[in-house]
Amino acid sequence: MIAKKLMPALFISGLGIFSLSACKHKPTDAEIQTTVQTAIANYTGISAEVKDGIVTLSGSVSSADDKANIETAVNGLKDKGIKSLTDNISVAPPPPAPTLALSPDDSLTAAVKDATKDFPGISATVSGGVITVTGEVEKSRILTLKQALDALHPKKTNLSAVKVK
């Protein structure tokens, strides 16, 4: 009975001790740095410096969205001892998309003629880098045809009009 009555009191005093100790500990700059670095670990090339609770972020990201997301993540850590945030992250433009080495139409036309020689049921035309095939082909041979045409570096291999037997 006594134990039962004492329980809530023990619980409350326990909480008191716990929260007291949490209040008492002021995070050091090194601890703040670890917290911040963990929060932004998904972004490579970003470093965080902490001095007197002031966090300075530097580095480069590929989009303004990333920069904003990092700022939001770090600002969300204000209760971890961060006094203020200086964001020196720069946004670099993304690298250009790889350019495709496409075959010009005249060499592509000659190559398509070679590739389709053994497919008497079809005819193929080339325009603007796109190979368009019409006619009939056995199901067992469509893979060979597609492989041969894709290997010629076309912009597209259009088989949509081909009837597969």
């Binding site: 199901k139 469509i142 893979l143 894709d150 570096h153 597209k156 088989l159 949509s160 081909v162």
Partner: peptide
């Protein structure tokens, strides 16, 4: 590739 696009009729991939 052939499972996703049977007979390669869609033509939205060039696989080389």
């Amino acid at each position: 590739y052939g499972k996703i696009d049977p007979n390669f009729l869609t033509g939205d991939v060039v696989l080389d």
